[in-house]
Structures are given as structure tokens and as C-alpha cells.
């Protein structure tokens, strides 16, 4: 089972991911992501709260990367918080922990940008090529 609970915060938006994010459940993250993207730029970073994320496979990684790219195109960041060890291994293997800024807790993640390592997709911050939200590129 998997669920995404989206919570507005004065400093940004929190996506609380719960359960198993895999081939079957990524669609929920896509849907929640599309809705968030519809709110447009200028509404702050999105923090994926992974406290209750029990499992993530390559499809989940694909979905997170896609969301990251789409947010970057709006000049917004996707940060990870509270990644449990079981999931941290996959994030580490794929290098997601290098692409995203990873934080110990949600509050840190919301105010990050000065502390954590913040990588924004090339083009998003005025580089040559903006990254457009891609369609249907899930693994």
C-alpha cells in the first residue's frame, strides 16, 4: 500500500510518502505531482517526507526524478527528508542522495538552501536549456 499526503507549509509544500513506492503505486505520486505543478512557480520547495516510506524501487526513483525535473523547470526544488535506512541504500546506489538535498528532518528541509547541498537541474536557473516537464517517462 502507498499513499501521498500533501501538506502546505508557510515555507513550502510537504509530500508525506507512506508505504511502498513501486511500479504499481508511482501513479499516485505522478498524480499528486501534477496537481502540485499546476500551482505554478513561486510557491516554494517541495519536501518529500520519507519517514514512513517503507520501500522504493527503480520505478519510485524514476518518479521522484521526473518530479524533480518538472519542479526544476519551475525553478523549484525537491528535497528529501527523514529517509529511512532501507530506502537510503537505493537512493545512495542511484546517486539520488547526490542529486537531491537530503535532510534529517522536514523542518530543516523546508528552510534549506543555505545549509544542504542544493542541486537544481541545469537550465532551471537560467542555464541554456530549460528542462520541460516530461510526459510519460516513468520506468
Amino acid at each position: 500500500m502507498f499513499s501521498v499526503v500533501v501538506r502546505q507549509d508557510a515555507r513550502g509544500v510537504v509530500f508525506a510518502l507512506r508505504g511502498e513506492l513501486d511500479f504499481e503505486s508511482v501513479v499516485q505520486l505522478h498524480e499528486a505531482g501534477e496537481q502540485e505543478l499546476g500551482r505554478g512557480p513561486g510557491v516554494g520547495p517541495v519536501v518529500a517526507d520519507c519517514s514512513d516510506l517503507e520501500f522504493c524501487d527503480s520505478s519510485g526513483v524514476g518518479a521522484l526524478v521526473r518530479f524533480f525535473q518538472q519542479l526544476s523547470a519551475q525553478g523549484r526544488a525537491l528535497r528529501l527528508a527523514c529517509v529511512p535506512d532501507s530506502v537510503a541504500r537505493l537512493f545512495s546506489l542511484t546517486g539520488l542522495d547526490q542529486v537531491f538535498s537530503v535532510h534529517a528532518d522536514v523542518s530543516d528541509a523546508l528552510v534549506a538552501g543555505t545549509g544542504g547541498r542544493e542541486i537544481v537541474a541545469p537550465g532551471a536557473a537560467g542555464a541554456d536549456k530549460p528542462v520541460q516537464p516530461s510526459g510519460g517517462q516513468g520506468t
Binding site: 526524478v65 546517486g95 547526490q98 541545469p122
Partner: peptide, 13 residues
């Protein structure tokens, strides 16, 4: 061997 996926960031490290 550490290294991030390709096509996302300028430096996959």
C-alpha cells in the same frame, strides 16, 4: 563505486 544516474545533473560525481 559511487556515482549518480545520468542525464539529470551536470556532475554525476
Amino acid at each position: 563505486a559511487p556515482g549518480a544516474l545520468l542525464g539529470i545533473t551536470a556532475d554525476p560525481a
